[in-house]
Amino acid sequence: MRHLEEQALILHHYGEGDDPALVERHLLDCKRCRDELDAIGRDLRDVGSIPAPERGADYGAEVWRAVAPRLAHRRSRRTWVLAAAAVVLTGTFLAGRLSTRLGSDIPQDEVRERILLVALGEHLDRSEVLLLEVVNTEKGELGQEAARELLRASRLYRQTAHQVGDIATGDVLEELERLLLDVAHGSTPSDTLKSRIRDRDVLFKIRVLQTNFKARGQLLAPQRF
């Protein structure tokens, strides 16, 4: 008589066998397999329920207190994504570049969010370069055309920030927007612009924003479930 394999008996014990009727028929006639099935049952009973330490009734509240501060970040990111969708759409060239790079298996919200972060980062980079030119240029052209290009995007980002209640980002973008406006008009004396940039630490504030957005981008690494 050919006996049942251990795997078949283990699956039968768990009620997951491929053909339970066949196994049952065999067991009726085969004491050795019946004994083996009993032994499997006894061993797995001894393994038991694998006890875990009990947690109190207020454990859920404790967990909430621990995780709640870490959820705030997503809330602001998520709101930014939804509210800034229009801004992102203006950067379609970016979307094309990034979606090719990111692949198709990443959730669309995440793709949009990463695009937004990249777009904001590039905007801040370009603004920083422009303001550095203003600070370091003695005479001549102050980048009026570049300022005009940056002005529209900056206004959209600033409006979005204020809409979603991100006051700190909105305030920096508002300050940046006023400077860009003055540079674009070309009517404000260079020394006045330089003083405003230095006195109000505008470059420092922009770098802080850049750092924050980079940190957000790093949190967007794909996760497996």
Binding site: Y59, G60, A61, E62
Partner: peptide, 11 residues
């Protein structure tokens, strides 16, 4: 949801 499922998730 956190308060409801935490103990089971922990186990």
């Amino acid at each position: 949801l956190v308060e409801t499922h935490s103990r089971d998730v922990f186990r």
